[in-house]
Amino acid sequence: MDSKHRVLIVEDSPDLAEALQKNLSLDGYEVSLATRAAQALPLVASERPELIILDLGLPDRDGYSVLKELRERGNSCPVLILSARNLEADKLEGFRLGADDYVTKPFSVMELLARISALLRRASAKSTAESATAAVVVSDDDLHERYGLTARQTAVARLLAEGCSNAEIARRLSVSYFTARNHTEQVLAKLGVSSRAAVGAVVFGQV
């Protein structure tokens, strides 16, 4: 890892929080800990983490409400929910509120580290895409005429080019996760590509 990414762990179990901190630190991350929502929110503002690992069962507030407040404040930091709640409804609620990933307890440390790395790569790609927005040469009309994209599919294509996940697309377009996933599949099919990076190449006029 070239530079240390800042990760905030919001977890009320001291043993689990310390174990996570140790594993992430060994993997090269700079880690902060919070055991309550009242500690976590000020840390987000002061330390500006690049990724947040969020437990749902906090002693002072439900983790969902913390996530909701972060998104309402305009904070787009990737959030990975780490929770013992394993029902599909729990996961869908997390994604609806703006979570980028959801891992259930018990979990594999190696899988968790891989998911964290993937989220940070995606966030980096999104940042790069946003900085290149001024270079966009393919207009909405061109995307419609060349590829037959509808207005909604064009919006999805531009979000994919920014590196957005299906969960983030759903949040930003105020649609369900499944609708966002279906739009993503339709965009990939119409553009004749198989990856989000390739969508970006089309949107930014690189093909």
Rank of each mutant, 00 (worst) to 15 (best):
P14F: 12
N23I: 01
E69W: 04
R48P: 03
A157S: 11
I53G: 04
A189G: 04
Y29A: 06
A17T: 03
V193L: 03
L119K: 00
D90T: 08
V7R: 01
E93L: 08
L82G: 01
Q206A: 14
S131N: 04
V199G: 00
A40P: 04
R196N: 08
T104D: 06
H5I: 03
R85F: 12
F107S: 10
D60R: 13
C77V: 15
A45Y: 08
H5T: 01
F107Q: 10
L51R: 01
V44R: 04
S174I: 01
L67I: 08
E185F: 05
V136I: 12
V7N: 01
Q153H: 02
S131D: 09
F178W: 09
L92K: 09
S65D: 14
E111W: 07
S83T: 15
R61K: 12
I9S: 06
K91E: 13
E168M: 10
L173K: 03
I116Q: 07
P49T: 14
A198I: 05
A161L: 07
E47H: 09
V10S: 00
A118F: 03
N182Y: 11
F95V: 00
D60C: 15
L97N: 00
D141N: 12
Y177E: 10
P42G: 03
S117N: 11
G163F: 01
D12C: 11
N23S: 12
D2E: 10
G200Y: 04
S131E: 10
D12S: 15
L54C: 05
D100W: 02
S165G: 14
E30S: 14
E130V: 03
F204R: 14
S195T: 15
R172W: 00
V203C: 07
L20H: 09
F204N: 09
T150A: 11
A157D: 10
A167Y: 00
A180L: 06
S195R: 07
E30Q: 12
A84M: 15
S3A: 07
L70I: 13
G94E: 07
E30W: 05
N75Q: 06
A114L: 11
R158A: 01
A180V: 01
I81Q: 02
A45L: 10
N86F: 09
D2F: 09
L160D: 07
L41H: 14
L43F: 13
E88Q: 14
D90E: 14
A161M: 08
V103N: 04
A135H: 10
G94Q: 11
A17N: 02
I52D: 03
D15S: 13
S176W: 02
L43M: 13
S46Y: 09
D142F: 02
S174M: 05
E18P: 09
L16A: 12
A197E: 08
E185K: 14
K105P: 04
S25R: 15
L80T: 01
E168Y: 03
A135S: 15
L149F: 06
L92N: 10
K22T: 11
A134N: 12
